[in-house]
Amino acid sequence: MAKTHPAVAALALALLLGPVPALATQPGALTAPVVRAPEWGQLTPEQQRILAPLAAEWPKMEHARRDKWMRIVRQYSSLPAEKQQRLQSRMQQWASLTHEQRVQARERYAKLKSLPPEKRHEINRKWAEYERLPEERKHKLRQAIQTAE
């Protein structure tokens, strides 16, 4: 009986470990465990206060997204008051974006963040310029980039 074990064990190992490299390249594939996040009523009063802008959206939100907000709440207390306020004021807008828009925003943020401080300052200045442009001009710029794509 001892002779059959190494072969069977090797086969079992191969079957189990075979898909690992493939799964490792696909986040959330196949065996990804399901995330459980609390309902609104289960949040502490302090968590409800921080997440107040999302109160209406919370019941419709999938658990993975709620989990992400809970992680953001954990960082909230370590932020300066000004950033806490900014974060709360932007929650609704962020939650209303599509998944693709959020992915795009994260990518562009990472790209701009990697720039040297003087370049970042320049970008901030250009944003102020862009905001002052007439709506018609902004519309044309959006169309131009969509055509280029």
Binding site: K68, W69, R71, I72, Q75, L79, K83, R86, L87, R90, M91, Q93, W94, L97, Q101, R102, Q104, A105, R106, R108, Y109, A110, L112, K113, I123, N124, K126, W127, E129, Y130, L133, K138, H139, L141, R142, A144, I145, Q146
Partner: peptide, 25 residues
Amino acid sequence: AEIDAQVLTDDLPIAAYVDQGFEAW
């Protein structure tokens, strides 16, 4: 979550990261 928190507290508003017109500008 850490990246989201950074975007949400950044000097630039969210619109700057999603408005394609700004990218073109």
